[in-house]
């Protein structure tokens, strides 16, 4: 029984079906339980959260990633799956916390002051949440002081900054300075992205990584984890 639940969980992640109301790709699945319902049933069946995550959610995402690489899947497919996994993580979070199992880490993300572009930032948020990070999305046009405050109070492991305008990318440099002034720079790894910025700019202002897109961010974060381990 529990094997069946895990298998359908994985399949529904691949199908990108968050709940039973979602369409997915195969029509015959409509009306059957989606990732949210299956995660709940798995818990009811006393399947350990680690099993749900590794053999259901992550295994499903693995396949989605492969399908994306072979161009069978596109970004909308990827996001649907990531969103489903994110929703499952929300259900598992209190249980993981209670049993002291850590998530991959806390990720705060914001579009900097003066900039209202957010499509890219939102995609990155969904993907990271789907990859198992606890994401705190601060929104757009976020004042530098607010970002500093979040780093101090919420203590994220990672801070993601997005800027699409050449006039707002300079704010990223200001944020780094402000973090330094507040003695917080070494408390958090900073990742930046968006059309205006580049590798050179990342080096110039001294952040930890520039990411072309959300997938790149996941790779960079994985590399940080490995380096830590």
């Amino acid at each position: 029984m529990s094997e069946d639940i895990i298998a359908s969980l994985k399949e529904n992640v691949i199908q990108g079906r968050k709940t039973q109301d979602d369409e997915g790709i195969d029509e015959e699945l409509s009306g059957t339980p989606g990732v949210v319902e299956l995660t709940q049933s798995a818990l009811d069946d006393n399947i350990p959260p680690e099993t749900i995550i590794t053999r259901g959610l992550t295994a499903g995402m693995q396949v989605v990633g492969e399908k994306f690489t072979t161009r069978e899947y596109f970004i909308p497919d990827m996001l649907a799956s990531a969103e489903a996994v994110g929703a499952a993580m929300d259900i598992l979070k209190p249980i993981l916390e209670a049993s002291n199992i850590e998530t991959k880490g806390k990720f705060a993300i914001a579009t900097v002051k003066g900039d209202i572009h957010d499509i890219g930032k939102n995609i990155v948020s969904i993907l990271l949440k789907g990859a198992g990070y606890e994401v705190n999305d601060l929104g757009t046009d976020v004042p530098t002081e607010k970002i500093v405050e979040v780093v101090r109070e919420y203590k994220p492991d990672f801070l993601g900054l997005s800027a699409l305008l050449t006039t707002t990318m300079v704010v990223m440099g200001e944020i780094i300075e402000a973090l330094k002034e507040n003695g917080l720079r070494d408390k958090v790894k900073v990742l930046i992205g968006g059309a205006a910025v580049s590798d050179e700019y990342a080096q110039e202002i001294g952040v930890d990584a520039y990411c072309v897109d959300g997938f790149h961010a996941i790779k960079v974060l994985d590399a940080f984890q490995e380096a830590k381990a």
Binding site: R71, F74, I75, I119, D213
Partner: peptide, 8 residues
């Protein structure tokens, strides 16, 4: 404009 499916 329409979104590109591979990058949005």
């Amino acid at each position: 404009v329409r979104a590109r499916m591979d990058t949005l």
